[in-house]
Design a protein around this nucleic acid. Structure first.
Length: 531
RNA sequence: GGGUCUAUAGCGCAGCCAGGUAGCGCACCGGACUCUUAAUCCGGCUGUCGAGGGUCCGAAUCCCUCUAGACCCGCCA
């Protein structure tokens, strides 16, 4: 054991580099060709993609960047599982989808009419998120993959070994279903449904699966099968492998060397690794497991609870870099996540930039390297040449709460007054917009009814008159204080009433200068509305 | 039944994954801002790092055991 020295630091010193390093070591010991290392991320296409799905792809892209940094060619495949069946209607989607339950999401019309199918609509939301944070990917979809027969050899091998696989699944994870049925779900040629068609027999010579469409239980719903009996050609007809074996087929067919996974599909990955290694004779890709994002109460993010965080919503309040920082800073550990994390992440980015440009000193070599490395990954290994102007995001939120009209201009002026910035910049304008959205959306202070006794009313009336007069009082702070005193109102209470009227909170910035910022006439008018 | 994560100041959390003097925010205490409010600024206090063991010159950090909570998967409905 000894202290980390510069020579021991792998790549840029982050967990991403360590992971890429492990991957390379493993590939070298396997002796595989390293001309192009493909990493993969699976995109769900049945539900609204939240930040966790985005994270899978963003992190895989990080590994790609690390591999490139080590001198290898790499590519991220973003694979949409759009042959998965629709299990239930997501919150906020029309009930008319009911008739499409159990059909592959790529065969369901887009209820919003903007994409070729329901599945593409969902995938597009995620791809749009990736585009917005600057992630590059090669898009593939299950529908094309199966229709073009890209997996036909793997499917054949898997179905030939289905008995062995069924036993293994039972032993590894206790699921006995595949001891009875083939791990393949044909799409019923008659009713287009997926999970209702049960595959019982594989005709290896013809490469066809025999199935019968009958009633099936999905979640708590009973889905009626149509009774159709048919056969599906694994190279042409629609149908898909069960998850327990599908990844393996894809890894082998696409030559995937890395894929991250969430702990919810840990068992599937375990089985797939075995299938890849033992049945398909393709050493499984390197993995990393991550925890699910939970909401602030430690509850699972779920659509029905309304606590879903999408990239699109996040980007109304935070920069793309704040998302990348969230996803790259670490991968281990359960994460309770909410929009309220945005302000710290916005500021943390500035801090990292200061470390990167040497404005903040860090003694520990490994930690310095890690912070600089993290900064580089957040910039997708293309860091800026010089530091940007930093404005504390929380300050912007506070100023945004005060100025709701002409916000951009007035907040900018305040920043100039405070000496926070030297001149107006478009980047700062954007920041003000983000912080403004944040303060509008999460200004939780309730506009409660304010109880006013007679002396408070009298004092308010006096103040309103004083502020509304043509001659404005020179020292508003002092005027307020005097008025309170002469009306036998505790200054403490009077100030609180004023904050409640003007800001809807019980505290705020020093009130004299604040009132003149807003405009004395306007404040006078606001006060008179309460009298 | 199987698995994973979490436990750090009064509260909320970072630091742990690559060991090197225990940190941040809020709260609290003191001071400043010519005038008993608020805000702001400056300074200060706050810890058996869940418990026990191990490795190490050195452990919040790595390993093992335990306790409590959360989550995931499976089984069942």
């Amino acid at each position: 054991m000894r202290k980390m020295s510069e020579a021991d630091i792998i790549g840029k010193g982050t967990w991403i580099d360590k992971l890429a390093h492990e991957l390379l070591e493993r590939e070298k010991s396997l002796g595989r060709n390293l001309d192009l290392i493909k990493v993969e991320s699976g995109l769900g296409a049945s539900g609204v993609p939240h930040i966790g799905s985005l994270g899978d792809a963003v992190r895989a892209y990080g590994v790609k960047l690390a591999l490139e940094n080590f001198g290898y060619k790499s590519e991220l495949i973003a694979y949409s599982d759009d042959l998965d069946g629709l299990r239930k209607i997501p919150e906020g989607f029309p009930d008319s989808l009911e008739e499409h339950i159990a059909k592959p999401v790529s065969l369901i019309p887009d209820p919003f009419g903007c994409h070729d199918s329901y599945g593409m609509h969902m995938s597009s939301i995620l791809l749009d998120g990736l585009d917005k944070v600057g992630i590059k990917y090669e898009f593939r979809r299950a529908k094309d993959t199966y229709q073009q027969g890209l997996l036909k050899d793997q499917i054949h091998t898997i179905l030939q070994n289905s008995a062995k696989i069924g036993d293994q699944i039972s032993e590894m994870v206790g699921q006995e279903k595949f001891q009875k049925f083939l791990p393949y779900f044909p799409v019923c040629a008659n009713c287009n449904r997926l999970y209702t068609a049960e595959a019982s027999e594989y005709l290896g010579d013809e490469r066809k699966v025999l199935y019968k469409c009958h009633d099936a239980e999905i979640g708590s719903n009973m889905i009626k099968g149509c009774g159709h009996e048919g056969e599906a050609d694994i190279a042409k007809d629609l149908g898909k492998l069960a998850w327990k074996v599908e990844f393996a087929a894809r890894w082998a067919a696409f030559d995937i060397r890395f894929e991250a996974y969430g702990k919810d599909i840990m068992d599937s990955v375990k089985v797939n690794d075995w299938v890849a290694d033992e049945i398909l004779n393709y050493p499984h890709p390197h993995h990393v497991k991550y925890e699910m994002f939970l909401d602030k109460g430690g509850k699972k993010i779920s659509k029905s609870l309304g606590n879903v965080i999408t990239a699109q919503k996040w980007l109304e309040f935070g920069s793309p870099k704040s998302i990348l920082l969230l996803l790259y800073k670490r991968i281990t550990g359960a994460r309770e996540l909410g929009f309220e994390d945005i302000p710290s992440l916005m500021n943390e980015y500035n801090e990292l930039e200061d470390i990167y440009f040497g404005r903040i000193k860090v003694d520990n070599q490994a930690k310095l390297s890690k912070s600089k490395g993290l900064f580089e990954y957040v910039n997708l290994l293309n860091p800026p040449k010089e530091s940007s102007t930093h404005v504390n995001y929380r300050l912007l939120i506070e100023l945004s709460k005060i100025f709701k009209e002409d916000r951009g201009q007035r907040v900018m002026k305040k920043l100039l007054d405070y000496g926070v910035i030297k001149n107006p910049q478009p980047e700062i304008e954007k920041l003000i917009e983000l912080a403004g959205n944040y303060s509008d959306e999460f200004d939780d202070s309730e506009k409660a009814e304010i109880d006013l006794d007679d002396s408070s009313k009298k004092a308010l009336n006096e103040l309103s008159t004083a502020l509304g007069a043509d001659e404005e009082p020179e020292d508003i702070q002092n005027t307020i204080y005097q008025i309170a005193k002469s009306n036998d109102v505790q200054p403490k209470d009077f100030f609180r009433i004023l904050y409640q009227i003007i800001l809807g909170t019980s505290r705020g910035p020093k009130i004299g200068p604040f009132i003149s910022d807003i405009g004395t006439k306007k404040v006078a008018k606001t006060i008179s509305e309460y009298l």
